[in-house]
Simulated assay, not measured.
Amino acid sequence: MTEKALKIGFDAKRLFLNKSGLGNYSRWLVQGLSEDFKQNEYHLYSSIISDYKRDFNKDNIFFHQPLGVFKKFWRIKTIKKDLLRDKIDIYHGLSNEIPYGIEKTKIKSVVTIHDLIFKTHPEFYNPVDVLIYDKKFKSACNRANKIVAISNYTKKLLIDLYKINPEKIEVIYLNSPHIYYSTPQFNEIETIKSTFGISKPFMLNVGAIGGRKNQFRILDAFKMISNKVDFNLVFVCKPNRNSEMFIEKINEYNLESRCQIIHDISENNLHKLYHASYASIYTSIIEGFGIPIIESYRSGKPVITSYGTSLEEISGKAALLCNPTEIESIAENMLKIYKKETYKSLVENIPGELPKFNTENTIHKYINLYNNL
Rank of each mutant, 00 (worst) to 15 (best):
L158K: 02
Y162T: 04
Y162S: 02
Y162E: 06
K163E: 06
K163L: 08
N165V: 08
N165L: 11
P166V: 03
E167C: 06
E167D: 14
E167L: 13
K168R: 09
E170D: 06
E170I: 09
V171F: 11
V171C: 08
V171E: 09
I172L: 08
I172M: 07
Y173W: 07
L174A: 03
L174D: 04
L174Y: 03
N175R: 15
S176P: 02
S176G: 04
P177S: 02
P177W: 00
P177K: 03
I179V: 10
I179G: 00
Y180A: 00
Y180C: 01
Y180Q: 00
Y181V: 03
Y181L: 10
Y181C: 09
S182N: 14
T183G: 04
P184V: 04
Q185S: 15
F186R: 15
F186V: 15
N187T: 15
N187S: 15
E188H: 09
T191E: 13
I192N: 03
T195H: 10
T195E: 13
F196D: 00
G197C: 10
G197D: 11
G197S: 12
I198Y: 04
I198D: 10
I198L: 15
S199E: 13
P201C: 02
F202Q: 07
M203D: 06
L204R: 04
L204Q: 06
N205S: 15
V206Q: 04
V206N: 07
A208Y: 05
I209D: 01
G210A: 01
G211M: 08
R212A: 09
K213Q: 09
N214F: 06
Q215L: 04
R217E: 02
R217T: 00
I218G: 06
D220W: 03
A221M: 03
A221N: 02
F222K: 07
F222E: 02
K223F: 07
K223E: 10
K223T: 02
M224W: 00
I225T: 12
S226M: 08
N227I: 06
N227K: 14
N227E: 10
V229D: 03
D230H: 14
D230S: 14
F231N: 05
N232Q: 14
N232S: 15
N232F: 04
N232M: 09
L233D: 03
V234R: 00
F235N: 04
V236Q: 11
V236R: 11
C237H: 04
K238T: 08
P239N: 10
P239S: 09
N240H: 03
R241K: 13
N242G: 06
S243N: 12
